[in-house]
Amino acid sequence: MDRLLFGDNQFFGVNHMSEEKARAQSMKFQDLSAVIDVLDAAYDEGIHTFMCTTHDRVGEIVDYMRTKPERYAEQIFYPGMPYAHKYANAMTEDGMVGAIKRFLPDGGLLDAAFKGGMSVAKKDIEGITTLLIDAEMKMFQGLPTPVIFLQNVVVDLLLGLGFKDAFRIFAEHVRKKYNAEPGFISMNLPTLLKVLKEVGVENPVVCSNINKVGFRMSGGGVTAYEKALNEYEFQAIAMSVFASGAIPPREAIEWVCKLPNLKSIVFGASSRSNIHSTKVLVDEYWVG
């Protein structure tokens, strides 16, 4: 796994600091060419991993890259699914069952399952889950996806519900069908690691907020996260290392690079210069 991964929040109007900035970014990245320019800048800095959602626009990016296999010879993707707002909005319109139906390639299986009522067969759930994963993965067909993530809204919802088997089902399917490492994004790192261990998901890739000020590090903050890094066997990716701009870049990178057992950092940037300066800082502080 590369030390630096490139994220996609900035392309979709996600900014945890300001709604104005988020809108400005949406405008800037309305044209695919503006997105490609930034991805090219990252690629040329040697950042070859794009950690992205399964937003429809990612499909466009991926399609574009497919047309230039030489330009993007080293490009790999870490897809994160599902793009949650798509489901949340669908749920408001059609209810939960309607929403799932809308995204399933074949409604037949689900209809059969719902008719079953209380007698829920395990194979139904595994079948629905794996069909949903396959539907989300379609856009990456034929491209390298060595890690496949479950997004934090889903991971943390299931974690809270105690739906622990879902993590195992996801991990098994991703390993078997895509020959990929299962990844989990979570805002509750210590709690999640305990559960993944309990259900037997070994050495998982886990991405969570890790920053000097403890922003959105639920379940014990900096102390608990450092402890988790030391005690659990997992592949840790830090996100939100700048805490949405609350920490100056040098201070943020210096701090995060000193953490034990960190595998990688995922970051987003909207300009060539920001990508370059982050790369320089990581090269400076991440020794060994």
Partner: peptide
């Protein structure tokens, strides 16, 4: 004042600190 200054850590996070 940004959300990073104004928000207290919550015991568990799913979709926004305010819900927890």
């Amino acid at each position: 004042r940004y959300t990073t200054d104004l928000t207290d850590e919550v015991y568990f996070y799913v979709r926004g600190e305010e819900y927890s």
